[in-house]
């Protein structure tokens, strides 16, 4: 219940309005029309809520609609039925309260780091001087101030994702949506980013909804982990993280992570202990089947299928 105690965080914008959840989904269903006719049901009857300043991770097999789910929450994709509310407001388009961090940094290659981070402020009509000053502050927060004048192709993968996170924070969002933000990073960098993300979270008072492939990452970062079923995705389990806040790098090796991980794996269907589970697919097998079913060819169809469905 460490989570609930955090709700009253002093600089939480939501401390006064704790009544409405930061994120609320009710009966959300998402379908995509198929080229061959018929409809692909990506998500079906998804319902959950996220309290203000809570960190919730979503985990599930590839192709189960995790990225789609995040897009629906962020207002980038309409739901066929059901409702999504943020801070008590119904979502019907990209919401100013949301900061989105995509799987790829998505920096504009013709802008330097500073102007990339200032981009949301520019779109919002902030004056040049002010937005450059604000972007400079954000770069300091993510440790990129020395690279303000670098172009994206001059930065390492980790630096680019830092810039993307700084950009997502530019408009001071109360809700951060992270779509496998560290999946392109090597394991060591990834752990460091996990620790830094928690520090950032501590300072920025945001609610975080995060999609990840890594069970350990989910348990380390989140207060609760929601497990999605294979397509059509729906929430089949909720596992609480055993770690107390504040967390540090030491918690990465906490033995309680392993216990929670076993529980999550069990829900994902590859515990391998029970006889009746043996016939079920492992995540990897499910991935292969989904790739074959969802996209004709393409090796990065695993995540690509979600992306393409979302964009078509």
């Amino acid at each position: 219940m460490a989570v609930r105690e955090r709700i009253g965080h002093p600089d939480s914008p939501a401390s006064g309005v704790a009544a409405s959840p930061a994120v609320l989904l009710e009966g959300v269903r998402v379908e995509f029309p198929q080229a061959a006719g018929g409809r692909l049901i990506a998500l079906d009857d998804v319902a959950f809520e996220v309290a203000p300043r809570e960190v919730v991770a979503i985990i599930g097999p590839n192709g189960c609609g995790k990225s789609t789910l995040l897009r629906v929450v962020g207002g980038l994709l309409p739901s066929a039925s059901g409702t999504v509310s943020l801070d008590g407001r119904r979502v019907d388009g990209p919401d100013p309260a949301v900061g989105f961090v995509f799987q790829e940094p998505r920096l504009l290659p013709w802008r330097d780091t500073l102007d990339n981070v200032a981009f949301p402020l520019e779109l919002a009509g902030m004056a040049t001087d002010e937005r450059r000053r604000r972007a400079g502050e954000l770069l300091r927060q993510v440790g990129l101030d020395r690279f303000a004048s670098y172009r994206p192709h001059q930065l390492s993968g980790g630096m680019r994702q830092r810039a993307a996170i700084a950009r997502a924070l530019a408009l001071g969002p109360s809700i951060l949506l992270l779509d496998e933000p560290f999946s392109a990073l090597d394991a060591l960098t990834r752990e460091r980013f996990n620790v830094e993300l928690l520090k950032l979270w501590d300072r920025t008072a945001s609610t975080i909804l995060l999609v990840t492939h890594s069970i350990r990452e989910a348990i380390f970062l989140a207060d609760r982990v929601l497990v999605l079923s294979p397509r059509p995705g729906r929430v089949i389990a909720e596992v609480r993280s055993p770690l107390r806040r504040p967390r540090s790098a030491r918690d990465l090796d906490d033995s309680s992570i392993a216990e929670a991980a076993i529980e999550i794996r069990h829900h994902l269907g590859f515990s391998g202990e029970e006889g009746d589970r043996a016939s079920e697919l492992t995540t990897d097998e499910a991935v292969l089947l989904h790739e074959a079913a969802v996209t004709p060819g393409g090796s990065d169809a695993a995540t690509g299928s979600d992306d393409m469905a979302a964009l078509s």
Binding site: G74, L76, G93, P94, P96, V98, F100, F102, R106, F119, P120, L123, A124, L171, A310, L311
Partner: peptide, 8 residues
């Protein structure tokens, strides 16, 4: 899509 998410 990034632009859309930033309400451009």
């Amino acid at each position: 899509e990034l632009g859309r998410s930033l309400r451009a």
